[in-house]
Simulated scan of single mutants.
Amino acid sequence: MAKKKNKKNPDEMSFLDHLEELRWHLIRSTLAIVIIGCVAFSMKGFIFDTVLLGPKHMDFPTYRFFCNIATYFGIESGFCADTLPFTLQSRTMAGQFSAHIWTSIWAGFIIGFPYVLYEVWKFISPGLYEKERKNSRGFIFIASFLFFTGALFGYYVVTPFSINFLGTYVVSAEVLNEFDLSSFISTVKTSVVACGIMFELPIIIYFLTKVGLVTPEVLRKHRKIALVVVLIVSAVITPPDVASQIVVTIPVLILYQISIYISKRVIKNEEKRMSKKAPKSS
């Protein structure tokens, strides 16, 4: 009977062994994305008509919410219109089929994000101390929660603002708004994925602090620079109006403050661990 192959000790693994380990984590992550993407591909009606094209219709929950607020205060609002004044079109032979495939792949990545995180965690966790692994057991849940919260924020807040602003903006009555399908999908995808990744800021700061690249003092010192970066990112993923950029900036600044607290806690725990290891003077 063949003996079962034992898993190698991370401390004894060579650089090539680590690369091989990483390769299998990437293969499993890609396979999960493809499988979920195939399921999404078979749900074309729901993915496109309900999810992607939902913000194109004025009965979308975000439009109704802001319309009700405007009506309550007696203010005229573009959120109360009957329809958005633009149409979608596909101008290439394979345009709709290509959009179907790529949308399914992105859906596979977004829905399968927790499993991708799981594979990432399996790769990096052997390099942590036992106590650190125990304290980080909620990593996948917290990181997934932050990502999906950001994705929902991007879909229900950033996307409607972008589509409503850009879809109604005209430079002349002579110019019709007839957008390509790929451009519309790109707007939705960018808003959702970018916000999902931005909401991972506390997790990113946690690991940067662990490896010594970031400290609470650095985060506080460069708070103004961080604000400028956030405003630039907000300008990229939102339409060029002040209201939309403020809507995106506020939660990111809150996450930045949380990240400072997390970085402070990491440094404090590291100092406690080092003090316990230090030899006591006689």
Score class of each variant (00 low, 15 high):
residue 25 H to R: 15
residue 25 H to D: 12
residue 26 L to Q: 13
residue 27 I to D: 10
residue 28 R to S: 15
residue 29 S to A: 15
residue 30 T to L: 14
residue 30 T to G: 15
residue 30 T to R: 00
residue 31 L to V: 15
residue 31 L to K: 06
residue 32 A to T: 14
residue 33 I to N: 10
residue 33 I to M: 13
residue 33 I to T: 12
residue 33 I to L: 13
residue 36 I to F: 10
residue 36 I to A: 07
residue 36 I to V: 15
residue 37 G to F: 04
residue 39 V to C: 09
residue 39 V to R: 06
residue 41 F to I: 12
residue 42 S to I: 11
residue 44 K to F: 13
residue 44 K to D: 15
residue 45 G to K: 07
residue 45 G to R: 07
residue 47 I to V: 15
residue 48 F to D: 03
residue 49 D to V: 03
residue 51 V to F: 08
residue 53 L to V: 03
residue 53 L to I: 03
residue 53 L to N: 06
residue 54 G to N: 00
residue 54 G to P: 00
residue 54 G to S: 01
residue 55 P to E: 00
residue 56 K to Q: 03
residue 56 K to W: 04
residue 56 K to R: 07
residue 57 H to D: 08
residue 57 H to S: 07
residue 58 M to F: 06
residue 59 D to P: 00
residue 61 P to H: 02
residue 61 P to L: 03
residue 62 T to R: 05
residue 63 Y to F: 03
residue 64 R to Y: 07
residue 65 F to C: 04
residue 65 F to T: 08
residue 65 F to Q: 09
residue 68 N to T: 10
residue 68 N to F: 05
residue 69 I to D: 08
residue 70 A to N: 06
residue 70 A to Y: 04
residue 70 A to K: 01
residue 71 T to K: 11
residue 71 T to I: 08
residue 72 Y to Q: 09
residue 73 F to W: 12
residue 73 F to T: 06
residue 74 G to Q: 08
residue 75 I to R: 09
residue 75 I to N: 06
residue 78 G to Q: 00
residue 79 F to G: 00
residue 80 C to Y: 05
residue 81 A to S: 06
residue 82 D to M: 01
residue 82 D to L: 02
residue 82 D to A: 04
residue 83 T to H: 09
residue 85 P to V: 05
residue 86 F to W: 01
residue 90 S to T: 12
residue 90 S to K: 05
residue 91 R to H: 02
residue 91 R to I: 04
residue 92 T to C: 00
residue 94 A to M: 09
residue 94 A to W: 13
residue 95 G to K: 03
residue 96 Q to V: 02
residue 97 F to M: 00
residue 97 F to H: 01
residue 101 I to L: 13
residue 101 I to T: 03
residue 104 S to D: 03
residue 105 I to H: 09
residue 105 I to Q: 09
residue 108 G to F: 12
residue 109 F to L: 14
residue 109 F to R: 06
residue 111 I to D: 02
residue 112 G to M: 10
residue 112 G to L: 11
residue 112 G to F: 05
residue 113 F to A: 10
residue 114 P to E: 08
residue 116 V to L: 15
residue 117 L to F: 14
residue 117 L to H: 08
residue 117 L to Y: 13
residue 118 Y to H: 15
residue 120 V to M: 13
residue 121 W to P: 13
residue 123 F to C: 11
residue 125 S to M: 12
residue 127 G to S: 09
residue 127 G to N: 08
residue 128 L to P: 05
residue 128 L to G: 07
residue 129 Y to A: 07
residue 129 Y to E: 11
residue 130 E to N: 10
residue 130 E to T: 11
residue 131 K to D: 14
residue 131 K to P: 03
residue 133 R to S: 05
residue 133 R to M: 12
residue 133 R to T: 10
residue 135 N to P: 01
residue 139 F to Y: 15
residue 140 I to G: 12
residue 141 F to E: 09
residue 141 F to V: 15
residue 141 F to T: 14
residue 141 F to A: 15
residue 142 I to W: 13
residue 142 I to H: 07
residue 144 S to E: 08
residue 144 S to I: 01
residue 146 L to K: 06
residue 150 G to V: 11
residue 150 G to L: 07
residue 151 A to C: 04
residue 154 G to A: 02
residue 154 G to Q: 01
